[in-house]
Amino acid sequence: MQAPAAAAPRWPAVAVRQGLFASEDAYYDALHDHLRDRLRAEVQALSDAEDVELLRTERLLQSIETAMGEIGARRDELAAPEGDDGPPAHMIGATVVAQLRSEADGLSEQIDRLTRRVAPNLRTIAGPRLTARLIEEAGGLERLARKPSGTIQVLGAESALFAHLQGRGPSPKHGVIYTHPAVRHAPRSERGSIARMLAGKLAIAARIDHYRGSLDEAFTTEVTDRLTAVRS
């Protein structure tokens, strides 16, 4: 807290007296525009920070899911054969998994909320979770927006990609976008081409999200219609 200040000047009167504005009304109009511009910059800075928050939330959620899987598997090894509670370690396993589950639910909600603000177009096409995974794999929304669709198609399948480049194995058809229902539920022979099409649309969505920042319903409707069409 600072020391009491001297009486503040009446800026509108000062501005008019100095000839900067023809009238107090003109001054107020300019002030209003100026402050709303500052507010817009504030919103922009916040959404820049929000994609990092999204990426970190997604990473934490992934760690929790891994831990849940491992603890769940160990717990199952200890499960009693005849349905009673089993040894104490089994009970501890159950408690911990339940706690992790509730944390994971909270993080999923955060991802839902953040993707709505950070990447509304990606979210509409890919859902909140896949959107978060793509931004996480790419290292941020801007980086995702700069990637070619061929890279987005195999994001998360790096080990298969490099194995292929070294002459071992076929080229990967898809990375994390495999979790999209249109890809996962497609017949094996179609998966590659659907993944390629989806990756192309996601690349465009990421660019709209990063460079424009608002939902383009005409675009997302067209894409979701097309994805529904290939599914049926």
Partner: peptide
């Protein structure tokens, strides 16, 4: 931002009221 769009005499300032000097260039006296 939304609320001020249609209200030309509503001046939004993101600042800490414990540090009033931070907005002394925009908030008028009297």
């Amino acid at each position: 931002l939304a609320v001020t769009a249609s209200r030309p005499r509503l001046f939004p300032i993101i600042a800490d009221a414990r540090q009033p000097a931070a907005y002394s260039d925009v908030v008028e006296g009297q």
